[in-house]
């Protein structure tokens, strides 16, 4: 009824590569080799601790900093496992137009440790403009791709990223339609997608609601933005909100704010790592239920959330939230923005009144690094005692809340609850989320 999931927060070894410089295939394989060695070692360690499946990060094998042309030597042609069976370790045939050294190595790592293995690399698909009007001028599609190998080393899943993040568009192509990639194991049904895909419905949400997967495999290269877009908080909130287990492997590059990986259960965080000081990543394992049965929360629309006049407006990651500050030690306050109204009932301890807190509401189209519609209710600490700092990055707090309850009248059923504590640590299983929707804690 259970299995052990593992993630490795890998720091890609990329050497002194120059951005945009085109290297040979041999040089690319030399560059990838130390990363594959880490994958092999960590897989062996995970298996020694009885892991059934291990996930490695997006861009884990060769890092960023490539262009459409300079990423080519790192890529391999990845056949569609839905149309042909292939075990690269047992059958390392040449797959034109590329060799398959990386796929073979990954396959053998999975086979030698008898474990499901998930990795991310570039897929090179040849095309002919005469037969395919969509075929790019350079006669190839390039995809940001997740691959999954079974414990025998067979390639069983291939997923092409649908929602490329900003400058990724110069490197990779977008599939013509979202791919819904699932596979069954003795411990449940899995789906997979990549990084920025998590913000959108297709395929992320539909994998859960339409394809009924139990678990998500999530290679990512996530750059933390506080307060909401911090990797562990955001990804675990999605797992909780969707009612699935979620294995998230982020690359570990603290200088670039790429920190935060974990194994998240449908009912709370199981294990996570977000050490900003550690030079290298970390392996994390946790036992998960094979077939989660999350409680169903009906989001009835709330009425009468009280006084709704805004006090001030402040920017939170490009969005203008309406805020009302917490002036008393305890009380009930509310704020609205467009159709969303939020209400908070709270009580602080007496010695923590000098830090500014506010409740905020946002209902609108977010457009900063992508375009997607948000409805948010939040109770947060402001960065300073100035109102315009509310929504800016802050990671430290001294204020103890004896209790709080946050309610909102959302128009959507897709709500992801999160609670973040001092030092930006996610809170684990010490809050409740219930009908309303209502987020509360003592």
């Amino acid at each position: 009824d259970t299995f052990i999931g593992a993630i490795y927060a890998h720091t890609p070894v990329i050497g002194s590569r120059e951005t945009g410089k085109i290297i040979t295939r041999e040089q690319a394989l030399e560059a990838v080799k130390p990363n594959l060695a880490v994958y092999e070692e960590q897989t062996r360690i995970a298996k020694s601790q009885n892991a059934d499946i291990i996930v490695f990060p997006e861009y884990g094998l060769y890092g960023f900093g490539t262009t459409r042309d300079s990423v080519v030597p790192y890529m391999e042609y990845i056949p569609d496992p839905q149309s042909e069976s292939w075990n690269p370790c047992l059958d390392p045939r040449q797959s034109k137009p590329t060799d398959n050294v990386i796929l073979k190595t990954l396959s053998c790592i999975a086979k030698n440790s008898s474990i499901y293995l998930v990795a991310n690399l570039g897929d090179y698909q040849y095309c002919e403009p005469a037969q395919d009007p969509e075929c790019p001028d350079d006669k190839r599609y390039q995809y940001n791709t997740n691959v999954v190998f079974d414990p025998q080393g067979a390639l069983i899943a291939r997923y092409h990223k649908q929602k490329l993040f900003m400058s990724e568009i110069v490197r990779y192509d977008v599939p013509t339609s979202p791919e819904y990639i699932t596979f069954n194991t003795p411990f449940g049904k899995f789906g997979t997608f990549v990084c920025f895909d998590i913000l959108f419905k297709e395929p992320a949400v539909d994998l859960v609601t339409e394809y009924k997967v139990n678990h998500i495999l999530f290679p990512t290269a996530w750059m933390n933005v506080y307060p909401f877009f911090s990797a562990v908080s955001f990804h675990s909130a999605w797992a909780y909100g969707m009612g699935v287990n979620f294995l998230s492997a982020n690359i570990h590059r603290p200088r670039n704010r790429n920190v935060g990986s974990g194994v998240y259960g449908y009912n709370g965080i199981k294990e996570y790592t977000m050490d900003h000081e550690a030079p290298n990543g970390e392996l994390k394992l946790a036992t998960l239920e094979s077939r989660p049965s999350p409680k169903t929360i009906q989001h009835t629309k709330l009425e009468n959330l009280g006084n709704t006049s805004r006090e001030f407006v402040s920017d939170l990651f490009g969005d203008k939230f309406n805020f009302v500050s917490l002036k008393e030690y305890e009380g009930t306050i509310s704020v609205c923005h467009n159709a969303v109204c939020c209400s908070a009932t709270y009580k602080r301890t007496g010695n923590s009144h000098n830090e500014l807190y506010a409740i905020g509401a946002f209902d609108g189209l977010h457009t900063k690094e992508g375009t997607y519609y948000l409805q948010i209710c939040t109770l947060l600490k402001c960065a300073t005692d100035e109102p315009e700092s509310c929504g800016s990055k802050v990671t430290d707090s001294k204020t103890i809340f004896e209790h709080f309850t946050l309610k909102g009248n959302f128009s959507t059923q897709h709500i992801f609850p999160m609670v973040v504590l001092d030092k930006a640590e996610p809170s684990i299983n010490d809050w409740e989320y219930s009908d309303g929707p209502t987020l509360s804690s003592n």
């Binding site: 519609y373 109770l379 947060l380 707090s397 959507t412 897709h414 709500i415 609850p417 999160m418 003592n442």
Partner: peptide
């Protein structure tokens, strides 16, 4: 109960149907 000072509590809602109403921003670099 919470074991540490609170930094942020949030309910982060995504209204996917509204994405389609507004459409996706053209892809840029």
């Amino acid at each position: 109960s919470l074991q540490k000072p609170l930094l942020t509590a949030a309910m982060f809602g995504r209204w996917y149907e509204m994405d389609q109403l507004f459409g996706q921003r053209p892809k840029t670099t």
